[in-house]
């Protein structure tokens, strides 16, 4: 039985960790909600973004938070191109092909990274890596607080883009009625690619906020994929607020599960919640389509 005094710090920490998960899940929920595809390459793309942040920092001395203005746009371009040139072409209108092609892309990207960057675990050293804020008698590392803010802001921005812009309207139309959207003159290939690009750009944001407290290696992304899918489904796919909320819940469940069931067995909490939500409320907590 754990000391009850650490329950509060543990919950606070779970919230900040959950915000990081939410960042990874935000991109996924857009891709999943609009394109209805399970993107196996999501983790590999996160890894790519993390290397971007790493090399900007170690080679050019760019602070990871400054890299927020560089990495997400580059990731957007990568995502847009991949969707336009590879994924759409390979799908031939069949889900299983998209599954395979994203799986193929994940294998290619991860092993290219292994070839190019070798398998070393890399970390960056920032002046604030070990700095903390003291909140309610708990030490919260500064980078995690920034990540928390970043997740909330990103979710808000996504919400704005989807609900208040022409692009957003096109994306929503496409998600609901692909055939109808085509009829009213929406360039579906472009909008699909924009959605995928935005989703991948979000990974760029996640990478900038994650690296100050984490590491990068060629397989680092896989550790986040499963948890991100859980969050997407928990929050309701296509829902940004849901993804944020789902991330926070998963963060707290993971923390409390670890505390009460042990760190290894405690992971089970995430999946049990996932299964229960899927069975009893398959549309997720905030389940409505984009």
């Amino acid at each position: 039985m754990p000391d009850l005094a650490i329950v509060l710090p543990s919950v606070l920490n779970g919230l900040t960790t959950g915000a990081l998960y939410a960042l990874v899940a935000l991109g996924l929920t857009l891709i999943y909600g609009v394109l209805h595809i399970i993107n196996f390459a999501h983790g590999a793309l996160l890894m790519l973004a993390l290397y971007g942040v790493y090399f900007l920092n170690t080679v050019l001395g760019v602070d990871p938070y400054v890299a927020l203005f560089i990495v997400p746009p580059v990731m957007f371009a990568i995502g847009y191109t991949l969707q336009r040139l590879v994924i759409t072409k390979a799908s031939h209108g069949r889900d299983e092909n998209i599954l395979l092609v994203t799986l193929g892309l994940a294998i290619i990207i991860e092993n290219l990274a292994l070839m190019g960057f070798r398998s070393d675990t890399r970390i960056i050293d920032t002046p604030y890596s070990f700095e903390v804020f003291e909140i309610l008698g708990t030490f919260i590392p500064q980078p995690k607080v920034y990540a928390f803010i970043g997740a909330v802001v990103t979710a808000g921005l996504f919400w704005l883009v989807i609900n208040k812009t022409d692009l957003g309207r096109a994306i929503r139309a496409l998600a609901k009625e692909p055939k109808g959207a085509r009829l009213v003159g929406i360039n579906t290939n472009h909008v699909f690619a924009m959605s995928f690009g935005l989703g991948v750009a979000c990974l760029g944001v996640a990478a900038c906020l994650l690296l100050p407290t984490y590491y990068v290696s060629p397989h680092v992304g896989q550790g986040f994929v499963l948890v991100a899918f859980t969050i997407v489904v928990l929050g309701g796919m296509g829902s940004f607020v849901g993804a944020l909320l789902g991330g926070l819940i998963i963060g707290v469940v993971e923390a409390l599960g670890g505390l009460f069931l042990g760190e290894s067995l405690g992971q089970i909490g995430i999946f049990v919640i996932f299964i229960v939500v899927l069975i009893f409320r398959p549309t997720g907590l905030l389940g409505h389509k984009v």
């Binding site: 590879v86 390979a90 092909n97 395979l100 092609v101 799986l103 193929g104 892309l105 994940a106 294998i107 290619i108 991860e110 092993n111 290219l112 990274a113 292994l114 070839m115 070798r118 398998s119 060629p218």
Partner: peptide, 16 residues
């Protein structure tokens, strides 16, 4: 290391 898997992935994508 990794090179053969890259080729594997590329061929997989091409097949699809």
């Amino acid at each position: 290391p990794g090179a053969s898997l890259v080729l594997y992935g590329i061929l997989l994508v091409l097949v699809i």
